[in-house]
Computed example of a mutant assay.
Amino acid sequence: MDDTDLHILRLVQSNSRLTADAISAEVNLSPPAVQKRLKKLRETGVIEREIAVLSPSKLGRDMTVIVEVNLERESRAHLDAFKKRMRDTPSVQQCYYTTGEADFLLILTVKDIKEYEAFTQTHFMDESNVSRFRTAVVMDRVKASLDVL
């Protein structure tokens, strides 16, 4: 990976709909050369996926919640089961297995406190392996990004 690849990545990271023509004008390569580089970046997994970033509030998901979760048991089977449940739950935007005070850190978007309460009932209170969870409700989304470069 060279500086041109990094430049291409910065461009598509901010706007994945840029055409090869538009990118080529920025990086001083031909459109076919840009397409070849993009293909390689996708095939090697540097570009994991290309998505649309949706507005939670415009879709009625006005509440963002950050949750620290502690498990009772941390065997591979228990960890894998919790990870799978979080992956399969649409309201969970991000889930991190962490070191420190909490075993997991979750970021969720929900419609309201009632929906969050139902989430906690299903995924924490009815789950015998969750020993504790701590919730922080986001008051203002100052920055939300998955940018790497």
Rank of each mutant, 00 (worst) to 15 (best):
M1K: 11
D2C: 05
D2G: 09
T4L: 12
T4S: 10
D5N: 10
L6F: 13
H7M: 11
H7V: 02
I8K: 07
I8S: 03
L9S: 06
L9Y: 08
L9N: 05
R10K: 15
L11Q: 04
V12F: 06
R17V: 01
T19G: 07
A20E: 05
I23K: 03
I23C: 05
A25V: 09
N28K: 12
S30I: 01
P31V: 04
A33I: 00
V34S: 03
K36Q: 14
R37C: 04
L38D: 02
L38A: 01
K39V: 00
K40A: 10
G45T: 02
R49C: 06
E50S: 08
E50A: 10
V53R: 11
L54N: 08
L54I: 11
L54Q: 09
P56E: 03
K58Y: 15
K58A: 11
L59I: 06
G60R: 07
D62L: 07
T64R: 12
T64W: 06
V65F: 04
I66N: 12
I66H: 09
L71T: 04
R73A: 09
S75C: 01
R76V: 11
H78W: 00
D80C: 00
D80P: 00
F82C: 00
R85F: 00
M86C: 03
M86H: 03
R87D: 08
R87Y: 12
R87M: 06
P90A: 08
P90S: 09
S91T: 10
S91E: 13
S91Y: 06
Q93V: 09
Y96V: 02
Y97G: 00
D103R: 02
F104R: 05
L106H: 05
L108P: 03
T109Y: 15
T109Q: 12
V110T: 07
K111Y: 11
I113D: 15
K114F: 13
E115L: 01
A118D: 13
Q121W: 08
T122P: 00
T122Q: 14
T122M: 12
H123P: 05
H123V: 03
F124T: 01
F124C: 05
E127F: 09
E127K: 00
E127T: 08
N129L: 03
N129R: 05
R132C: 07
F133C: 00
R134P: 00
T135K: 07
T135W: 11
A136M: 15
V137W: 11
V138N: 08
V138R: 01
M139I: 15
M139S: 13
D140Q: 14
D140C: 05
R141M: 15
V142R: 14
K143I: 14
K143M: 12
A144K: 14
S145M: 09
S145R: 10
D147A: 15
V148N: 12
V148Q: 14
